[in-house]
């Protein structure tokens, strides 16, 4: 058994940090060395830990438990066992977050440095995700009507998109280079400047051969469309399985896109 740990200070409310930690698939996707996530039949994460010229690759079935101040992610793989315990301690202006990672399995005697990197990068991810969440949600009435507008959108029906746009406003436009698995990173970056739970993000490459649309409520993907020369894939998220597929689809979005962000302006 190899144990590594770290602790960080996060200047965000405890609620924001807990929201990040409870969104298990979203959080695990942001771990380092995670190469694939599958939601079919429970959450599974394929993790590849590098050391020297070796790569220790295994698929872990991740289970999540929590109590009043700690969050435990228990990963059981074919060749190893990985446990991450995150403990929160709330102070007036910040939250102390202690992370402990233990690993038992193939290569454990060599992986010390990699595991230290692993736990530090997870800490960094928690910090970034928690601090980029909007501090205050918009007033409840607006939220509920925004939710209603968003719930009606299905990318396979262009008229539902038209309906949404007629009640929306463009708040951001820019050229963004999206790296591998970077759509979620871009969403986090955009969220930092925009105070709306519901976001419609659309991107298209210069030559128009690839494009995407994604509708989000908080960190949840409600619907996604990706089109390239092979055709168009559309997912409207209705259960956990759809959520996993939607997450997979976000990984196909790579390259330079002209990105526009629309938010509902409220009112019907």
């Amino acid at each position: 058994m190899k144990r590594k740990g770290t602790s960080i200070k996060i200047e965000a409310p405890k609620d924001s940090i807990e929201a990040v930690l409870r969104d298990v698939p979203g959080f695990v996707t942001n771990w380092p060395y995670v190469v694939r996530i599958s939601m079919r039949d429970g959450l599974k994460a394929e993790i590849m830990m590098p050391r020297f010229v070796f790569r220790f690759r295994d698929t872990y079935r991740v289970e999540y438990h929590s109590d009043y101040n700690s969050h435990i992610y228990d990963g059981t793989g074919d060749r190893g066992h990985l446990t991450l315990v995150i403990t929160l301690k709330e102070w007036q202006k910040y939250v102390d977050v202690v992370l402990e990672l233990s690993y038992k399995g193939k290569g454990e005697f060599w992986l010390g440095k990699t595991l230290q990197d692993f736990v530090e990068k997870v800490g960094k991810a928690v910090k970034e995700l928690a601090e980029s969440r909007p501090i205050k949600a918009p007033e409840p009435t607006a939220t509920s009507s925004d939710d209603g507008i968003a719930a009606g959108v299905d990318f396979s029906n262009p008229m539902s998109v038209a309906e949404f746009l007629s009640k929306s406003q463009m708040v951001h436009s820019g050229l963004h280079v999206i790296s591998a698995e970077g759509l979620l990173g871009l969403i986090g970056e955009l969220r930092g400047n925009i105070r709306s739970n519901v976001l419609y993000i659309s991107g298209i490459t210069n030559d128009g051969t690839r494009s995407f649309k994604v509708l989000l409520n908080g960190s949840r993907v409600l619907a996604i469309e990706f089109r390239d020369k092979n055709g168009t894939e559309v997912i409207k998220v209705e259960d956990d399985e759809d959520a996993g597929k939607a997450l997979e689809l976000t990984k196909k979005v790579q390259g330079a896109y002209m990105v526009n962000v629309w938010v509902p302006v409220g009112g019907v």
């Binding site: 998109v161 463009m170 659309s202 991107g203 002209m258 990105v259 526009n260």
Partner: peptide, 12 residues
């Protein structure tokens, strides 16, 4: 810079 959606809104 207005994207497909921006042009659609003008057209609509």
């Amino acid at each position: 810079e207005e994207g497909i959606e921006g042009i659609y809104v003008r057209l609509d």
